[in-house]
Design a binder for these strands. Structure first.
Length: 466
DNA sequence: AAACAGTGCGCG
DNA sequence: AAAGCGCGCACTGTTT
């Protein structure tokens, strides 16, 4: 696969983009080194305690017997042999090289108290080596200077390394706080983070122009994720709470956009009912609710088989059909046309001035232009802010990082209002004026930390109208 | 000792 | 007919 900037605009974006990134890399991000050192020690102690606990378990006795002095708690291969070959738990499936799978999802099915402690240990070891020691090893003079690349990602997104600034924990609140507390602003300043809201969905709409999708974007009283959660779990609008909406969004809508299908979606939606103990807003367990609607089981089937009527899998298959054939008919047609056009031409062009050519799978052909162009919205804005606006206004505040659809600023408190207004204006007003293909409005969300407080303490602020 | 493939997991 | 996109990093186990 090859991707090249095929227009002046595409070339300029990369040319100015690397210069803006160089500024950001040179600025660097302050690290609370004393906190980091304390946290490393604390985490080491937690790991030692966990290891001691695991060493006294039954499973570990078996492990030790099988592997002797080669016993290694970090070896997934060894764990698989212990649990599934020796002890006799049901194997969750094999990897492509024929080992038993030992990822978190696979192990969740294993009913052995050892597994929860083991997963805890693995997680904590990862945090220690990657997010704490790994971070410390990149600190010079109290700062890190992560690299931001424009020449590595197949989609012409960016990437980041040494350390990777773009995958710092946040989804697990405890680990997120532990790690993000390391990242602090310069003395007397604040961290300000501005994210595009749903940028990939909006950019996708600029490709397919599906009227129903545009309606969802433009009309803020409408909510696509809530609506799909309602369909998937057969609920009324008033029954949908936050976690049910979360499942609709992350286990149906986004997987469908990325090319997943009813078989995987139904499995994940069904498992979420148990794992997240889902209840309707009025407190009825979701399993009971579905039973009252005549759906009693998942009805998992092998690839190639049709699900039995009345099962959850069959229901989700119908939801998927309606989603693509009725609700987002034009989006669906665009995907077909876009794929066919690639087959005819052997390449595709993006709205931001790039051409991708070479062998690509269908899902790649659909996703690459959307992912790349969505990031380019951020990149254009970032260039404008870093290389023009902050300089022209002689502001002291700095941009210090970027995560695909968000920028992170290290902001002087007196400049906070101007900074927030500036990024809002560039990202949502100036950009759509220049890129006329943006046929839907863009929105951002801004989070700010108090003065001298870490990235863990960011909180959403409203955007002042100036 | 260094390089490589495979696995798993963090983020968008 | 096929069936989730992108990235980097740590670690294991094997090959060079």
């Amino acid at each position: 696969m090859k991707m090249i900037p095929a227009t002046e605009g595409g070339y300029a974006l990369l040319h100015e983009g690397v210069q803006a990134f160089a500024d950001i890399e040179s600025n660097g991000i302050c690290i609370d080194v004393p906190y980091l050192n304390r946290t490393i020690k604390k985490t080491e102690r937690r790991i030692t305690r966990l290891e001691r606990q695991l060493h006294s378990s039954k499973v570990f006795k078996v492990w030790k017997r099988m592997f002797g002095n080669k016993t290694n708690l970090s070896s997934g291969e060894q764990l698989g042999k212990v649990l599934f070959d020796e002890i006799g738990h049901k194997s969750p499936g094999l990897t492509k090289s024929g080992q038993h799978k030992t990822d978190e999802e696979s192990l969740a099915k294993v009913k052995d108290p050892f597994v929860a402690d083991y997963l805890n240990l693995i997680k904590l070891r990862g945090v220690l080596s990657k997010n704490l020691r790994g971070l410390l090893s990149e600190v010079t003079d109290g700062k890190i200077h992560s690299f931001f690349n424009l020449h590595t990602a197949r989609t012409y997104r960016s990437s980041s390394e040494r350390p990777n600034f773009q995958n710092q924990p946040i989804r697990d609140p405890d680990i997120g706080t532990l790690v993000r507390s390391c990242f602090i602003p310069r003395r007397g300043r604040k961290l300000v983070e501005a994210d595009y809201s749903g940028i990939e969905v909006r950019v996708a709409a600029c490709y397919h122009k599906d009227p129903r999708m545009i309606e969802y974007i433009v009309d803020t009283t409408k909510d696509m994720h809530r609506d799909m959660a309602m369909e998937c779990y057969l609920l009324q609008e008033s029954d949908v709470n936050k976690s049910i909406r979360y499942c609709g969004k992350n286990m149906f809508v986004f997987p469908q956009f990325y090319g997943s299908w009813w078989r995987d979606c139904s499995l994940h939606l069904w498992e979420a009912i148990h794992k997240m103990n889902l209840k309707t807003a009025s407190g009825v367990p979701l399993l009971d609710h579905l039973r009252s609607k005549g759906i009693k089981k998942l009805g998992q089937v092998a690839v190639g088989e049709d699900p039995v009527k009345g099962t959850f899998a069959h229901h989700i298959m119908q939801v998927e059909r309606h989603f693509w054939n009725v609700r987002f008919k034009q989006y669906s047609q665009w995907k077909k046309d876009w794929w066919q056009q690639y087959l005819d031409l052997g390449y595709l062009h993006t709205l931001t001035g790039f051409v991708c050519s070479g062998f690509m799978r269908k899902n790649e052909v659909i996703n690459y232009p959307i992912q790349g162009s969505a990031f380019h919205c951020l990149l254009w804005s970032l260039i404008r802010i870093v290389r023009y606006e902050l300089k022209r206004r002689k502001m002291k505040s700095l941009v210090i990082g970027q995560i695909h659809d968000s920028i992170l600023g290290d902001v002087v408190p007196e400049e906070e209002a101007e900074f927030v207004h500036l990024v809002h204006h560039v990202m949502t007003v100036e950009l759509p004026k220049v890129w006329r293909w943006l046929c839907v409005p863009l929105e951002i969300e801004v989070d700010v930390s108090p003065v001298d407080c870490s990235w863990a303490e960011k909180e959403e602020v409203s955007i002042p109208r100036l």
